[in-house]
Computed example of a mutant assay.
Amino acid sequence: MNHFTLIATAAMGIEALVAKEVKNLGFENVKVDNGKVMYESSSKGIARSNLWLRTADRVKLLVGEFKATTYDELFEQTKALPWSDLLPRDAKFPVIGKSIKSKLYSVPDCQAIVKKAIVESLKEKYNVSWFEETGATYRIEIALHKDIATLTIDTSGDGLHKRGYRYLHNVAPLKETLAAAMIMLTNWQYDQPFVDPFCGSGTIPIEAAMIGQNIAPGFNRSFVSQKWHLLSSKDWREAAEEAEDLAKYDRNLQIMGTDIDHKMVELSVNNAEEAGLSELITFKQMQVKDFHRKEVGGYIVCNPPYGERIGEKIQVEQLYRDMGETFQQFPTWSVYVLTSNEKFETFYGKRATKKRKLYNGRIKTDYYQFFGERTKSFGKH
Protein backbone atom coordinates (compact mmCIF):
# COMPACT_ATOMS: atom_id res chain seq x y z
CA MET A 1 0.00 0.00 0.00
CA ASN A 2 1.70 3.21 -1.14
CA HIS A 3 -1.08 5.69 -1.81
CA PHE A 4 -2.55 7.73 1.01
CA THR A 5 -4.73 10.74 1.63
CA LEU A 6 -3.08 13.01 4.17
CA ILE A 7 -4.53 15.82 6.26
CA ALA A 8 -2.25 18.64 7.43
CA THR A 9 -4.07 20.32 10.30
CA ALA A 10 -3.73 24.07 10.65
CA ALA A 11 -4.60 26.88 13.03
CA MET A 12 -7.57 28.96 11.90
CA GLY A 13 -6.50 31.66 9.49
CA ILE A 14 -3.40 30.03 8.02
CA GLU A 15 -4.94 27.16 6.04
CA ALA A 16 -4.01 28.86 2.74
CA LEU A 17 -0.41 29.16 3.90
CA VAL A 18 -0.27 25.46 4.78
CA ALA A 19 -1.81 24.64 1.39
CA LYS A 20 0.88 26.71 -0.33
CA GLU A 21 3.57 24.75 1.53
CA VAL A 22 1.94 21.46 0.53
CA LYS A 23 1.80 22.49 -3.13
CA ASN A 24 5.41 23.69 -3.04
CA LEU A 25 6.40 20.20 -1.91
CA GLY A 26 4.85 18.86 -5.10
CA PHE A 27 1.76 17.13 -3.69
CA GLU A 28 -1.40 16.89 -5.78
CA ASN A 29 -5.18 17.11 -5.34
CA VAL A 30 -4.79 19.71 -2.60
CA LYS A 31 -8.08 20.72 -0.95
CA VAL A 32 -8.42 23.42 1.69
CA ASP A 33 -11.04 23.34 4.45
CA ASN A 34 -11.47 24.97 7.85
CA GLY A 35 -8.51 23.96 9.98
CA LYS A 36 -7.09 21.44 7.52
CA VAL A 37 -5.54 20.79 4.13
CA MET A 38 -6.09 17.43 2.38
CA TYR A 39 -3.80 15.99 -0.31
CA GLU A 40 -2.61 12.76 -1.94
CA SER A 41 0.74 11.23 -1.01
CA SER A 42 3.04 8.23 -1.21
CA SER A 43 4.67 6.72 1.89
CA LYS A 44 7.77 8.83 1.31
CA GLY A 45 5.48 11.87 1.20
CA ILE A 46 4.51 11.21 4.82
CA ALA A 47 8.17 11.62 5.79
CA ARG A 48 8.61 14.72 3.60
CA SER A 49 5.45 16.34 5.00
CA ASN A 50 6.58 15.92 8.59
CA LEU A 51 10.10 17.14 7.86
CA TRP A 52 9.13 20.21 5.82
CA LEU A 53 5.76 21.68 6.85
CA ARG A 54 6.57 24.79 8.90
CA THR A 55 3.05 26.05 9.60
CA ALA A 56 0.96 22.86 9.96
CA ASP A 57 0.13 21.50 13.43
CA ARG A 58 0.45 17.83 12.51
CA VAL A 59 0.05 15.38 9.62
CA LYS A 60 -2.69 12.77 9.76
CA LEU A 61 -3.42 9.79 7.53
CA LEU A 62 -7.07 9.61 6.45
CA VAL A 63 -8.54 6.13 6.93
CA GLY A 64 -12.17 6.87 6.12
CA GLU A 65 -15.04 9.34 6.21
CA PHE A 66 -18.76 8.63 6.39
CA LYS A 67 -22.06 9.81 7.86
CA ALA A 68 -22.98 8.33 11.24
CA THR A 69 -26.04 9.27 13.27
CA THR A 70 -26.27 6.06 15.34
CA TYR A 71 -23.72 4.01 17.25
CA ASP A 72 -24.52 1.01 15.05
CA GLU A 73 -23.63 3.01 11.94
CA LEU A 74 -20.41 4.18 13.54
CA PHE A 75 -19.47 0.62 14.51
CA GLU A 76 -20.27 -1.07 11.20
CA GLN A 77 -18.70 1.56 8.95
CA THR A 78 -15.59 1.78 11.09
CA LYS A 79 -15.23 -2.01 11.04
CA ALA A 80 -15.53 -2.02 7.24
CA LEU A 81 -12.45 0.17 6.77
CA PRO A 82 -9.13 -1.50 5.74
CA TRP A 83 -7.50 -1.51 9.18
CA SER A 84 -5.41 -4.60 8.53
CA ASP A 85 -3.69 -2.80 5.65
CA LEU A 86 -2.57 -0.12 8.09
CA LEU A 87 -2.13 -1.71 11.52
CA PRO A 88 0.26 -4.61 12.15
CA ARG A 89 -0.69 -7.34 14.60
CA ASP A 90 1.32 -5.80 17.46
CA ALA A 91 0.20 -2.20 16.84
CA LYS A 92 -0.59 0.02 19.80
CA PHE A 93 -3.70 1.93 18.75
CA PRO A 94 -5.18 4.31 21.33
CA VAL A 95 -8.31 6.15 20.20
CA ILE A 96 -8.99 9.82 20.89
CA GLY A 97 -12.04 11.76 19.78
CA LYS A 98 -14.06 14.94 19.43
CA SER A 99 -17.63 15.72 18.44
CA ILE A 100 -19.08 19.03 17.20
CA LYS A 101 -22.73 19.60 16.26
CA SER A 102 -23.39 15.85 15.91
CA LYS A 103 -26.05 13.45 17.19
CA LEU A 104 -23.29 11.23 18.55
CA TYR A 105 -22.07 13.75 21.10
CA SER A 106 -20.62 11.43 23.75
CA VAL A 107 -16.93 11.33 22.89
CA PRO A 108 -16.02 8.50 25.34
CA ASP A 109 -18.77 6.32 23.84
CA CYS A 110 -17.58 7.06 20.30
CA GLN A 111 -14.00 6.24 21.22
CA ALA A 112 -15.01 2.94 22.80
CA ILE A 113 -17.13 1.94 19.79
CA VAL A 114 -14.38 2.79 17.31
CA LYS A 115 -11.84 0.82 19.35
CA LYS A 116 -14.15 -2.19 19.49
CA ALA A 117 -14.85 -1.99 15.73
CA ILE A 118 -11.15 -1.91 14.89
CA VAL A 119 -10.46 -4.86 17.20
CA GLU A 120 -13.23 -6.89 15.56
CA SER A 121 -11.86 -6.02 12.11
CA LEU A 122 -8.34 -7.06 13.04
CA LYS A 123 -9.52 -10.28 14.71
CA GLU A 124 -10.84 -11.47 11.37
CA LYS A 125 -7.54 -10.67 9.66
CA TYR A 126 -5.07 -11.99 12.24
CA ASN A 127 -7.25 -14.77 13.65
CA VAL A 128 -6.53 -13.88 17.27
CA SER A 129 -8.86 -12.89 20.11
CA TRP A 130 -6.50 -10.53 21.99
CA PHE A 131 -4.07 -7.79 20.93
CA GLU A 132 -1.26 -6.99 23.35
CA GLU A 133 -0.44 -3.67 21.63
CA THR A 134 3.29 -3.81 22.33
CA GLY A 135 4.48 -2.41 19.00
CA ALA A 136 4.62 1.00 17.32
CA THR A 137 1.96 3.59 18.15
CA TYR A 138 -0.82 4.40 15.68
CA ARG A 139 -2.94 7.04 17.43
CA ILE A 140 -6.41 6.99 15.92
CA GLU A 141 -8.84 9.90 16.07
CA ILE A 142 -12.60 9.80 15.58
CA ALA A 143 -13.73 13.32 14.72
CA LEU A 144 -17.45 13.97 14.30
CA HIS A 145 -18.63 17.22 12.71
CA LYS A 146 -22.27 17.68 11.70
CA ASP A 147 -22.72 13.87 11.78
CA ILE A 148 -19.79 13.22 9.43
CA ALA A 149 -17.29 10.85 11.02
CA THR A 150 -13.64 11.20 10.02
CA LEU A 151 -11.15 8.54 11.09
CA THR A 152 -7.46 9.36 10.94
CA ILE A 153 -4.11 8.10 12.23
CA ASP A 154 -1.57 10.64 13.50
CA THR A 155 1.78 10.36 11.68
CA SER A 156 3.61 13.08 13.63
CA GLY A 157 3.56 12.15 17.31
CA ASP A 158 4.44 15.38 19.08
CA GLY A 159 2.92 18.40 17.33
CA LEU A 160 5.00 19.80 14.48
CA HIS A 161 5.61 23.00 16.46
CA LYS A 162 8.01 20.97 18.61
CA ARG A 163 11.12 21.40 16.48
CA GLY A 164 13.43 20.06 19.17
CA TYR A 165 15.32 23.26 19.98
CA ARG A 166 13.12 24.93 22.59
CA TYR A 167 13.50 22.99 25.83
CA LEU A 168 13.05 26.18 27.84
CA HIS A 169 10.61 28.99 27.13
CA ASN A 170 8.92 32.00 28.65
CA VAL A 171 5.53 31.94 30.40
CA ALA A 172 3.39 32.49 27.28
CA PRO A 173 5.47 31.09 24.40
CA LEU A 174 4.58 31.70 20.78
CA LYS A 175 4.26 28.41 18.92
CA GLU A 176 7.00 27.79 16.41
CA THR A 177 4.41 27.10 13.70
CA LEU A 178 2.74 30.50 14.24
CA ALA A 179 6.13 32.23 14.33
CA ALA A 180 6.96 30.65 10.98
CA ALA A 181 3.58 31.71 9.60
CA MET A 182 4.17 35.31 10.71
CA ILE A 183 7.46 35.36 8.81
CA MET A 184 6.08 33.63 5.72
CA LEU A 185 3.23 36.14 5.52
CA THR A 186 5.87 38.81 4.85
CA ASN A 187 8.03 39.07 1.72
CA TRP A 188 11.27 39.00 3.73
CA GLN A 189 14.23 37.55 1.86
CA TYR A 190 17.30 36.05 3.53
CA ASP A 191 19.59 38.90 2.41
CA GLN A 192 17.46 41.58 4.13
CA PRO A 193 17.80 42.74 7.76
CA PHE A 194 15.35 41.10 10.17
CA VAL A 195 14.63 42.15 13.77
CA ASP A 196 12.31 40.93 16.54
CA PRO A 197 12.36 43.55 19.32
CA PHE A 198 10.36 41.35 21.74
CA CYS A 199 12.19 38.07 21.19
CA GLY A 200 11.14 36.29 24.41
CA SER A 201 12.57 32.78 24.06
CA GLY A 202 13.89 33.53 20.56
CA THR A 203 11.28 31.68 18.53
CA ILE A 204 10.74 34.24 15.75
CA PRO A 205 14.47 34.89 15.07
CA ILE A 206 15.23 31.15 15.16
CA GLU A 207 12.41 30.36 12.75
CA ALA A 208 13.63 33.18 10.49
CA ALA A 209 17.13 31.67 10.46
CA MET A 210 15.71 28.27 9.53
CA ILE A 211 13.67 29.82 6.72
CA GLY A 212 16.62 31.96 5.61
CA GLN A 213 18.87 28.91 5.21
CA ASN A 214 16.03 26.67 3.98
CA ILE A 215 16.50 24.23 6.86
CA ALA A 216 13.69 21.67 7.17
CA PRO A 217 11.95 22.44 10.50
CA GLY A 218 11.64 18.77 11.43
CA PHE A 219 15.25 17.90 10.66
CA ASN A 220 16.36 17.61 14.30
CA ARG A 221 13.47 15.62 15.77
CA SER A 222 11.76 12.26 15.44
CA PHE A 223 8.24 11.27 14.39
CA VAL A 224 6.00 8.45 15.52
CA SER A 225 5.63 7.10 11.95
CA GLN A 226 9.37 6.41 11.75
CA LYS A 227 8.56 3.13 13.52
CA TRP A 228 5.69 2.20 11.22
CA HIS A 229 5.85 -0.69 8.77
CA LEU A 230 4.04 1.52 6.20
CA LEU A 231 7.19 3.58 5.69
CA SER A 232 10.54 2.02 4.92
CA SER A 233 13.85 3.19 6.32
CA LYS A 234 14.63 4.16 2.71
CA ASP A 235 11.67 6.59 2.70
CA TRP A 236 13.02 8.39 5.75
CA ARG A 237 16.64 8.24 4.60
CA GLU A 238 15.84 9.74 1.19
CA ALA A 239 13.63 12.44 2.74
CA ALA A 240 16.42 13.38 5.18
CA GLU A 241 19.02 13.40 2.38
CA GLU A 242 16.78 15.70 0.35
CA ALA A 243 16.46 18.07 3.31
CA GLU A 244 20.24 18.10 3.76
CA ASP A 245 20.83 18.75 0.05
CA LEU A 246 18.34 21.64 -0.07
CA ALA A 247 19.68 23.46 3.00
CA LYS A 248 21.62 26.65 2.20
CA TYR A 249 24.10 26.70 5.07
CA ASP A 250 26.38 29.18 3.27
CA ARG A 251 23.82 31.99 3.28
CA ASN A 252 24.74 34.97 5.43
CA LEU A 253 21.82 36.29 7.47
CA GLN A 254 21.22 39.59 9.27
CA ILE A 255 18.89 38.50 12.06
CA MET A 256 18.62 40.11 15.48
CA GLY A 257 16.43 39.49 18.51
CA THR A 258 16.19 41.96 21.38
CA ASP A 259 14.32 42.01 24.66
CA ILE A 260 14.20 44.33 27.66
CA ASP A 261 14.61 41.32 30.00
CA HIS A 262 18.16 39.96 30.18
CA LYS A 263 16.80 36.55 31.26
CA MET A 264 14.84 36.32 27.99
CA VAL A 265 17.97 37.20 26.04
CA GLU A 266 19.88 34.38 27.79
CA LEU A 267 17.00 32.02 27.06
CA SER A 268 17.04 33.00 23.39
CA VAL A 269 20.79 32.45 23.15
CA ASN A 270 20.45 28.97 24.71
CA ASN A 271 17.63 27.99 22.34
CA ALA A 272 19.55 29.25 19.31
CA GLU A 273 22.55 27.18 20.40
CA GLU A 274 20.29 24.14 20.76
CA ALA A 275 19.05 24.73 17.20
CA GLY A 276 22.64 25.06 15.96
CA LEU A 277 21.93 28.60 14.75
CA SER A 278 23.61 30.76 17.37
CA GLU A 279 26.22 32.09 14.94
CA LEU A 280 23.50 33.37 12.60
CA ILE A 281 21.49 35.41 15.12
CA THR A 282 22.51 38.33 17.32
CA PHE A 283 20.63 38.65 20.61
CA LYS A 284 20.82 41.81 22.68
CA GLN A 285 19.19 43.29 25.77
CA MET A 286 17.48 46.49 24.69
CA GLN A 287 14.24 48.42 25.13
CA VAL A 288 12.21 49.16 22.01
CA LYS A 289 12.81 52.94 22.26
CA ASP A 290 16.52 52.32 21.66
CA PHE A 291 15.96 50.56 18.32
CA HIS A 292 18.15 52.08 15.60
CA ARG A 293 19.33 50.69 12.27
CA LYS A 294 21.20 52.22 9.34
CA GLU A 295 20.09 49.68 6.73
CA VAL A 296 17.32 50.37 4.23
CA GLY A 297 14.34 48.09 3.68
CA GLY A 298 14.53 45.83 6.71
CA TYR A 299 11.78 43.85 8.44
CA ILE A 300 10.49 44.00 12.00
CA VAL A 301 8.34 41.00 12.96
CA CYS A 302 7.14 40.80 16.56
CA ASN A 303 4.68 39.51 19.12
CA PRO A 304 4.68 42.21 21.86
CA PRO A 305 2.74 41.94 25.16
CA TYR A 306 -1.03 42.21 24.69
CA GLY A 307 -1.90 43.86 28.00
CA GLU A 308 -4.58 41.33 28.94
CA ARG A 309 -3.46 40.89 32.53
CA ILE A 310 -4.63 43.20 35.31
CA GLY A 311 -2.18 46.07 35.85
CA GLU A 312 -0.48 45.67 32.45
CA LYS A 313 -2.89 47.67 30.30
CA ILE A 314 -1.46 51.17 30.83
CA GLN A 315 2.14 49.95 30.45
CA VAL A 316 1.34 48.10 27.24
CA GLU A 317 -0.49 51.07 25.75
CA GLN A 318 2.60 53.20 26.39
CA LEU A 319 4.76 50.46 24.86
CA TYR A 320 2.66 50.61 21.68
CA ARG A 321 3.13 54.40 21.56
CA ASP A 322 6.88 53.92 21.92
CA MET A 323 6.84 51.38 19.10
CA GLY A 324 5.03 53.80 16.80
CA GLU A 325 7.30 56.74 17.58
CA THR A 326 10.42 54.60 17.15
CA PHE A 327 9.61 52.48 14.10
CA GLN A 328 8.13 55.37 12.12
CA GLN A 329 11.59 56.94 12.15
CA PHE A 330 12.55 54.17 9.71
CA PRO A 331 10.04 54.61 6.85
CA THR A 332 11.73 52.08 4.54
CA TRP A 333 11.33 49.28 7.08
CA SER A 334 8.26 47.04 7.04
CA VAL A 335 6.71 46.34 10.44
CA TYR A 336 4.55 43.31 11.34
CA VAL A 337 2.89 43.15 14.76
CA LEU A 338 0.72 40.39 16.27
CA THR A 339 -1.55 41.49 19.13
CA SER A 340 -5.04 40.96 20.51
CA ASN A 341 -5.32 44.65 21.44
CA GLU A 342 -8.05 46.04 19.19
CA LYS A 343 -6.86 49.63 19.72
CA PHE A 344 -3.28 48.92 18.67
CA GLU A 345 -3.36 51.25 15.64
CA THR A 346 -4.62 54.12 17.82
CA PHE A 347 -1.70 53.82 20.24
CA TYR A 348 0.81 53.09 17.47
CA GLY A 349 -0.28 56.28 15.73
CA LYS A 350 -0.74 54.88 12.23
CA ARG A 351 -3.22 52.77 10.29
CA ALA A 352 -1.89 49.42 9.12
CA THR A 353 -1.46 48.90 5.39
CA LYS A 354 -3.16 45.57 5.89
CA LYS A 355 -4.26 43.35 8.75
CA ARG A 356 -5.13 39.69 9.05
CA LYS A 357 -6.97 37.61 11.65
CA LEU A 358 -4.84 34.94 13.28
CA TYR A 359 -5.18 32.79 16.39
CA ASN A 360 -2.37 32.66 18.95
CA GLY A 361 -3.52 29.50 20.69
CA ARG A 362 -7.09 30.34 21.64
CA ILE A 363 -6.50 34.09 21.61
CA LYS A 364 -8.02 35.90 18.65
CA THR A 365 -5.43 38.35 17.33
CA ASP A 366 -4.80 40.73 14.45
CA TYR A 367 -1.59 40.70 12.45
CA TYR A 368 -0.93 44.36 11.67
CA GLN A 369 1.20 44.93 8.57
CA PHE A 370 2.88 48.29 7.87
CA PHE A 371 4.66 48.18 4.53
CA GLY A 372 7.89 50.15 4.24
CA GLU A 373 8.08 52.91 1.63
CA ARG A 374 10.96 51.60 -0.44
CA THR A 375 9.86 47.96 -0.36
CA LYS A 376 6.29 48.98 -1.19
CA SER A 377 7.38 50.96 -4.25
CA PHE A 378 9.29 47.93 -5.53
CA GLY A 379 6.35 45.62 -4.98
CA LYS A 380 7.73 44.00 -1.83
CA HIS A 381 6.32 44.16 1.68
Rank of each mutant, 00 (worst) to 15 (best):
G212Q: 11
Q213V: 14
Q213H: 08
N214K: 15
I215M: 14
G218N: 01
N220F: 12
V224S: 12
S225V: 10
S225A: 15
K227L: 11
W228F: 10
W228E: 10
K234M: 13
R237M: 14
E241A: 05
E242C: 05
A243E: 05
A243P: 01
A243G: 04
K248P: 05
K248T: 06
D250H: 14
D259L: 08
D259F: 07
I260F: 10
H262E: 15
K263G: 01
K263L: 10
M264N: 08
L267K: 13
S268A: 15
V269K: 14
N270A: 15
N270C: 13
A275C: 13
L277R: 08
L277Q: 12
L277C: 11
E279L: 11
E279Q: 13
L280C: 09
T282P: 01
Q287Y: 10
D290M: 07
D290W: 06
H292G: 01
E295Y: 06
G297A: 12
G298F: 04
G298W: 05
Y299P: 09
C302E: 03
P305G: 13
E308Y: 00
E312I: 00
K313D: 01
I314L: 10
E317C: 08
E317R: 12
Q318W: 09
R321T: 14
R321K: 14
R321E: 15
D322T: 10
D322W: 09
M323C: 05
E325F: 11
T326K: 00
T326N: 02
F327M: 00
F330L: 01
T332D: 13
S334Q: 04
N341Q: 13
K343T: 02
